[in-house]
Amino acid sequence: MNLTLHVWRQKNPQAKGQMVTYPAREISPNMSFLEMLDIVNEELVLKGEEPIAFDHDCREGICGMCSLVINGIAHGHERGTTVCQLHMRHFKDGQEITIEPWRAKPFPVLRDLIVDRSALDRIMMAGGFISVNAGGAPDANALPVPKEHAELAMDAAACIGCGACVASCKNASAMLFMSAKICQFAHLPQGQPERMDRVRKMVAAMDAEGFGNCTNQYECEAVCPKEISVRFIAEMNRDYWRAWL
């Protein structure tokens, strides 16, 4: 199949970017979206032009590096899928595809489709951990965890930190990302000692980074490649006001 791509090109964080149009020829429906971009890039390189820079690594949907907004939807229109796992069979021959980077003030564009997501690391730094040092832990079975709590914690923990929730949110809010970590620990007995402190610190960090606020539109949940539920945002909200009481 043949496609027309409109791609955001931006040389560096200071430069003014623009959309540039490229053809993508002889694309196999079995290719992943990134493999399609690889082909376009090979052609660009052979022409002596700089390839389209995009983040990617594991290419199996788990590392959270890949980060493209395709036709206005983070990770494309297939639900529960990262771009690297999005296959071209979901597009039509002759289709026009617009490819843009994550857009949010806390995610400055580094080049083309690559953005700086270190703001997410800084939210984690504020409290996305249980303060234990290696060596002092009791036997793992000393603290039983009800199966359903463990399952819920795992539902939340599935977050890959890609930032699609931020990219899709019209307010560039990182609530889904943050609530996933807060609720993973809130559902486990190990997370209880720091529970209230954690939610206050992480929310403060998110605010300081300049992310927006949740307006309960649930676009984040719709694009999340791990389909993390906004129930965790509700739970985080509850923990947050309880933390102040």
Partner: peptide, 18 residues
């Protein structure tokens, strides 16, 4: 032991054990 203490959500049996 350490990973469980870190909050790694390992799979559990119904009784709550790993």
């Amino acid at each position: 032991d350490h990973c469980a203490a870190q909050g790694v959500p390992f799979a559990r049996e119904y009784g709550g054990l790993l």
